[in-house]
Amino acid sequence: MTFALFLKVLFSAIEQGTPLLYATLGAIITERSGVLNLGVEGMMIVAAFAGFFGLHLTGNPWLGLLAAGIAAAFMGSLHGVVCLVFQGNQVVSGLALTILGLGLADFLGAPYIGTVTKGFNPIALPWLSSLPVLGPVLFTHDVLVYISFLLAPAAWFVLTRTRWGLALCATGENPQAVAAAGLSPLAWRWVGIVVGGFLIGCGGGYLSLASSHEWTHSISAGRGWIAIALVIFSFWRPGRAVLGAYLFCGVSAFQLRLQSAGVLQIPTWLLDMFPYLLTLLVLLLSSARGKGRAAPKALGVNLEPGA
C-alpha cells in the first residue's frame, strides 16, 4: 500500500467512522451506568430523521443536531421507563426500541424522502489544514468531526477522572455500593441513558446532516449494531472506541479501493470479510492480553426496587 493510498484510506476512515464514534461513545456512557442498550440502531435512525427535520424546518444545522440529540435521548428515556421504572428486561426493551425506531423513522420520514437540505459542509481549518502530510487528512472535515476529536478524550476524562464519571461507572459496577455511599444509582442510570442517548443521537444526526444532505429511508443501514459491537470491542473505553470506529471504516474503505485499483482478482466476498475479520482479530489479541477488562459487572442487571 502506497503512502498516498494510506492517507486516502485514513481520510475515509475518519469521515465514515465519525457517526460510529459518536454512537459508540454514547452507548459506552449508557452501558457504563449499567444499562444494556440494544436500541442504538432505532435511536440513530430516529435521530437522523429528527436532525433532518429540524434542519428542514429551521434551516439551521445546529438546531437539527440538537433535535437529533433530544430525539435519541427521548427514545433512550423510553428504555429508561421500561427498565428503570418498571424493571423490564433490558434486552427485550432494547430490541423493541430498535424495531420501534426503524418503523417510526420510516413512517414519519415517508413524505420527505428525497428532500435535499444544506447541512454541515467540510471546513478546512485555517492553519492546521496546511500542516504537511496529516493536515489535509485530519483538518479538512466538517465541524462535527472536529468535535468528535475532542469528544473521546473528554469522555475518557469525565468517566475516569471526575467524581461524576466515577459515580456513573460505579453504578454500572456495583449499584449497592453507590447507594451505600449516599448517591442514587437510579439517578445515575438516568444520567447514563440521557447523556449517552444524546450522543447516540448526534451519531444518527451526523448521517442526515453531514454524511448525506438528503433524507432517505434506511439511512442508518445497520450502523447502530456496528456501534454496539464496537462498544464490546473497545472494552467500554472511549479511547479504544476511536481505534475501533476508524479501524472498521478504514478497512472497508481500503477494500473498496483495492477493488477500484483493479490489480488483484480477489473474490469480493472475501474482501468484504476484512473489516470483520480484522476487528475480530484485534479483539481476540487484546482480550488475551488484557485481563479483567470485562463489561461493567452490573450491566443489564436491573436495580432492586427502592435501591
Binding site: S218, S252, S260
Partner: peptide, 13 residues
C-alpha cells in the same frame, strides 16, 4: 441501499 457506502465506492473509483 446505503448512501454512505455507495458514495465511498464512487470516491474510490
Amino acid at each position: 441501499y446505503d448512501p454512505l457506502v455507495e458514495k465511498e465506492g464512487a470516491k474510490s473509483l
